[in-house]
Design a protein around this nucleic acid. Structure first.
Lengths: 248, 248
DNA sequence: TGTAGATTTAATGTCAGACAATTAAACTCC
DNA sequence: GGAGTTTAATTGTCTGACATTAAATCTACA
């Protein structure tokens, strides 16, 4: 592993890339210990702080973990599903919030992906998944629930549905799509009537999942998407009108 | 923004988290300049190297960019779609390679997600998308193509199909699923007969997309999934037998 | 007056050396 | 042989310095 000191890129970035490539390429395997910071500094012919900056870059991506003490050092980290979830959610959330992605586009993507899980979830969902869905529906019907709590429960409901497919890769991919929508959903104020309609559709979906009727689950999700898009459209229209009023 | 010096966590990690939260929470907006490293060091009551390690962590996630010179500093970075793609692909690839995810599970997830794009893509694909798909099919039929090149073309074909949905969020989510499969696919040796079957299905899918027949696209993808699973099963069975032979 | 070039300056990038904190292993003593 | 102590290796942090970059300012000259 070598770096180019005359390159315009930061040395620490080059070192991080070199090590990252070694991990992705399988030349460094899970739980393998990297050389100590002092040794890396010597190998790359840079100072220890520069090596440390490189290692921190890798740690930020959960590619390595560090441990102190005589048997310590930097170790190649097994990227766990929870870690991957967290990164996925952060990235997706920022992508949406920073790129003026319309609610419509994000909503379409989210429900399209969720429908992809519907047949599998209908077939494989366990009693646990069903119980979680029912419990969340019950929570959503409670009086005095804030909009934020309602949205959080909505996410939990959909997560149970997706997890029902029993495919961790699918759950991971969906985590980003579903959770990243939450800040957008939180902009919406739900009337009691809105909530009732959403809860009814949730009931429909849960019933379909219980009956292992994939097509009905898909249909429920499609109806929920239409409902959500309608709701958002009216909310954002009202917002725009209010802003126009302020400006005029 | 404050940190806790008595916490067991690294100071640089705490500082990175504090700044990241400020970005996600909207208290720091895109292109806003952070205080200089010296000022941050003073604010957080740590040394400059510690601040730098924190900033490198954020840079590794494309959350900030740095610039030298008098008007330089660290700026909140707009997370671009290409940056998000790259992160998504790295994370997904590592997740699969490090967690003994079966080919079957990954393949199922990938095709389930891709089917989610099928109706939208059939409806909206442009002539450009169709042309790309046809071009890749043509390439796949060329003699002397290596397995890796065949797989790469396969990815390009599916990417065109997904992009045809005209939803950047969907394309972003799919990037991880499709690209992360590539290392697994590269383990497979394709016979001429295998390639012919896959190309025929690609033709079928392209024709369906041209006819804007979403159901036919979905059916084609389902058939392709079955074909891929069969192929992988026989390849991995042969591999296992060979290894057993070595061991015996 | 305007412009090209030199200078200044503020910021990041890098380095060297030191000390603190942590923790596993080796050692000592009972 | 076991409990407590010491040792040593490693990461975490700090200080201070210099190198590099690039925008802004200043200067000289046409």
């Amino acid at each position: 592993m070598k770096i180019d000191p005359s390159s315009p890129a930061d040395l620490s970035a080059q070192i991080a890339t070199a090590i990252r490539d070694a991990i992705i390429g399988g030349r460094l395997i899970v739980d393998q210990r990297l050389p100590s910071e002092a040794e890396l500094a010597e190998q790359f012919e840079v100072s220890r702080p520069t090596v440390r900056e490189a290692l921190k870059r890798l740690a930020a991506q959960s590619l390595i973990r560090t441990q102190r003490g005589p048997t310590g050092g930097a170790f190649v980290n097994r990227l766990s599903f929870p870690d991957a979830y967290a990164q996925q959610i952060t990235t997706s959330t920022l992508l949406l919030s920073m790129n003026a992605v319309s609610f419509e586009t994000a909503c379409e993507a989210r429900f399209a992906l969720e429908r992809a899980c519907a047949p599998l979830s209908a077939e494989r969902r366990t009693a646990d998944h069903l119980a979680t869905m029912r419990a969340e529906i019950h929570r959503q019907a409670q009086a005095g629930l804030t909009d934020e709590a309602f949205c959080a429960s909505d996410v939990a409901f959909h997560r149970a549905l997706v997890d029902g497919a029993g495919n961790p890769v699918l759950s991971y991919q969906l985590a980003g799509a579903v959770e990243a929508m939450q800040p957008l959903m939180n902009m919406i104020t739900f009337t009691a009537r809105d909530r009732a309609r959403i809860i009814a559709l949730h009931q429909e979906i849960a019933n379909a999942a219980e009956a292992q009727d994939g097509k009905a689950v898909t249909a429920g999700l499609t109806a929920l998407e239409a409902e959500t898009q309608d709701l958002a459209q009216s909310v954002f229209a009202a917002l725009a009108a209010r802003n126009a009023g302020k400006a005029g």
